[in-house]
Amino acid sequence: MTETNWQLVADGLGHLYAGPAAEQYAIASELAFPLAPGTPTPVAAALLRAHLAKPLRLREHPPIDEPEYDYLALVASETDLHVPVLEEIGSRDLLDAWLEVAWARRTVQHLERLRPEVGDIAVTVRRRKPEEDRYGQISSISLNGRMNFRGGLGRRAWPHTVKHLAKVGDADHGELLARAREEVAAENRYPERVTNRELALLDKWKVPRRSSLADWRALQEALDSATEERPMQVVLENHPALLANLITGNHGVWVRPQVRLGDQYVSDFLIASQTSAGMRWHLVELECPTARLTNVGNQRESPTLRHAIEQIQDWREWLKTNLLATREKIPGITIDARGLIIMGREDGTDSAREIRDRRSVNDRIEVRTYDWLLRAARRADSMAWGLLDEETGDLEQDW
């Protein structure tokens, strides 16, 4: 379990060295066993176990050696905790109890020093490279006092290892936050892999089937009368299978409409598919079905197509600096997510094959028409793979 309030964690740890619990006093009284009032709770438990070891035939604990005791003495000295001498402790069970108390006291003292809150940036020493600092943005605090950092991957630190804590609003918070996010991205070797908990965040957008005749008919009718982008957005929101069947997803496909990226951008759709390799995301930009892909005469990219390409490039740039926070809502997304632009109709005077191929290879952006989307819907039942995956897998397709 975790907490977001450091004081609650500190209070819970403080009970460990506040004295014996009421139940321990009751047991000691029944056994006529003297239990000093200031005895820490874990130590009281170890003393009671030692007292009952023979009658209850409990496991005997091996004796301790000097290095073990020296470590306890070192941790205890950091918090002015008085511990018995080596000979008085005797067993490893009792030493472990005193060590638990020493760790708790040290953790509480440093929690009180730092007063960490969610969003703060902790600067710690890198374990394997002590000459380098490590940066982590606090997401929660475990009940044992260890601070957990955003990004998973076992990123966490004990309070006593923190050299500096940048609070939200401090002058250096923004710079250190950027470093923390860079570290997470660099350490995550498999960003496409997601947990079941993360997948659960996408449940409402999961598409359970391939596109049907009804989906195709709805798209055809919208396309026959649409003179702007909005009707196409609406029909695809109402019939997400039209987009879902474009992508191969052996373990599921999800279609999210109108996804906000910060305060500046909104993608028309995000499509995700899960295979054994993990999640793959596609950034989808819709344009008007009457728009041209190329300019009349020179066959270069039309202003509308250039705008759509720039939109996807802007989204990727935004992801570069906001990737960690974005993955909390869009698990598995990467900064190089493939782009898909759907615009215009097929027209012999508007051939953009060279443009499409160049953008696919150089920018990982696919450019397709609404007629192509119709064809994908018609052949959905017979497709083992998504049409877009077939085409980007070096299989020749007409469009």
Rank of each mutant, 00 (worst) to 15 (best):
D268F: 01
D268I: 06
M279K: 05
Q274R: 15
T275G: 15
L283A: 04
Q274I: 12
G262D: 09
L270V: 10
F269S: 04
G297P: 05
A277Y: 12
C288F: 01
L286Y: 03
V296M: 10
G297V: 07
E285M: 06
Q299L: 12
R260A: 15
G297K: 09
W281Q: 04
V284P: 01
E285N: 06
S276F: 12
V266K: 10
S273Q: 08
V296Q: 13
D263R: 13
A277M: 12
R292W: 08
S273T: 10
I271W: 03
T294C: 08
L261N: 02
S267F: 06
P289K: 01
L286N: 02
I271K: 00
D268G: 06
E287L: 07
R260P: 07
H282V: 14
A291V: 02
T294M: 03
Y265H: 15
D268H: 03
A291Y: 04
E287H: 07
F269K: 02
F269P: 01
T275K: 06
Q264N: 12
W281D: 00
A277C: 11
V284I: 13
T275Q: 10
L283C: 01
V296A: 12
V266Q: 10
S276D: 14
D263P: 10
Q274E: 15
D263H: 13
I271M: 07
T294L: 02
M279I: 14
S273W: 04
P289R: 00
S276R: 13
N298H: 12
L270W: 03
V284R: 01
V284Q: 04
Y265L: 15
T275V: 10
G297N: 09
L293M: 15
L286M: 09
R280V: 12
H282M: 11
V296F: 11
S267V: 11
E285S: 00
C288N: 14
F269D: 00
S273V: 07
R260D: 12
R280Y: 10
S267N: 07
V266C: 07
R260V: 13
Q299R: 14
E285I: 02
I271V: 15
V284S: 04
